[in-house]
Amino acid sequence: MSQATIGQLSGHHNSFRRTATWAAILLVTILTNVPQADCAELDSVFRSDFKAALAEAEEKKLPLLIHFYADWCMPCKRMDREVFSATDVKDLLQTRFIATKVNSDQQQDLVRRYGVETLPSDVIVDSQSGRVLALHAGFQDRNGYVANISKAEAKFTRAHAGETLVLKSTPAAVEAKGASSTSSGGIELGEPKPIIGLAGFSPVAIAKNRQWNRGSPKFAWDYKEVTYYLCSREELVEFRNDPEAFAPKLLGCDPVILWESDKAVAGDIKYAAFFDDELFLFKSEERRRQFKANPEKYIRLQHALKVDQIDQTVVR
């Protein structure tokens, strides 16, 4: 190959390299100019520690808002830019809620606890009872987001209308006050009554001490739409921090019936049994004996049950 040909190829190569360099610079410039949410501002709105946020919400008697996201989730980033950067949204979250962000990849236990299936998702929890007030999945625009969380706040206010809450006079609070006369015992008309787990016995006392102690509605906490009564403030905090460690497995459904028929039937506390420190409930003594004969066969069940799938009104 002649020197001229080599020189021509080298010139083409240098030209391509210069073009690629300018293209890269242009791309960086474009990406830099895309509106981004101010990380420092978002940090001032959202707590990073879930347990600390829950404790703060309980202390201040405010609803807890949990925003589930992932670093790879484009709709999540869009909500950061278009929703959480809005002044009215930031003001609402900072004054009316205790808000926390949860990375779904890093905290799968919370994803399972609250039944999150889509990102982004926002779960609003009554910090005084653990009851889930609302779950909104998918991207929401600013107006829709404000409307949805305001409705959840109104439900929280109605549920605690007779208590002294750290609440200001906002349209949502005024609406809740006007509607409070239509509620009874913290339950709106038309809403189902709470499902009491373990017939009101404390799951912490059962799991830790193997004692069937009656809990109190004063120390109630919701887990997967089932309300559990605890015996003391200490038990309530312990259950709240790790409900999966104490609540009966499979929402209290008989694992033998579930295995044999794929039907969710609530067990009875009269036929309870522990295996590997986990509590299972059975429909009859016969079912319990079947389980004890080969427990490994039944504990492999991975059903993601919900309360409305259970074939019995009261989950025991």
Rank of each mutant, 00 (worst) to 15 (best):
D43W: 05
D43A: 09
F46Q: 10
F46A: 11
R47V: 05
R47H: 09
S48Q: 10
S48M: 07
D49I: 06
F50V: 13
K51T: 14
K51M: 12
A52I: 09
A55F: 05
E56K: 06
E58T: 15
E59Q: 14
E59V: 06
E59D: 15
K61L: 10
K61T: 12
K61D: 08
P63I: 05
P63V: 06
H67E: 14
H67Q: 11
F68L: 13
Y69I: 09
A70S: 13
A70V: 10
C73M: 00
C73E: 03
M74T: 14
P75Q: 09
C76W: 04
M79W: 07
D80C: 06
R81W: 00
V83K: 01
S85H: 10
V89E: 12
K90Y: 00
D91P: 02
L92E: 12
L93G: 03
L93N: 03
L93P: 04
L93Q: 07
T95K: 10
T95F: 08
R96S: 10
R96G: 12
F97E: 01
F97C: 03
I98Y: 01
I98G: 04
A99Q: 03
T100F: 01
K101T: 07
K101F: 02
V102I: 13
V102C: 07
N103Y: 06
S104Q: 12
S104A: 14
Q106P: 06
Q107F: 14
Q108L: 04
L110Y: 10
L110T: 05
V111G: 03
R112S: 14
R112P: 01
R112Q: 10
Y114C: 08
V116L: 07
V116S: 03
E117N: 15
L119M: 14
P120D: 15
P120V: 13
I124V: 12
D126K: 06
D126M: 09
Q128V: 01
Q128L: 10
G130W: 02
G130H: 04
V132K: 11
V132W: 03
L133G: 11
L135M: 13
H136L: 07
A137W: 05
G138K: 10
G138E: 12
F139Q: 04
F139P: 04
F139L: 08
D141P: 07
G144A: 15
Y145G: 13
A147G: 13
I149L: 15
A152T: 05
K155W: 02
F156Y: 11
F156T: 00
R158M: 12
R158K: 15
R158H: 02
H160D: 00
H160E: 07
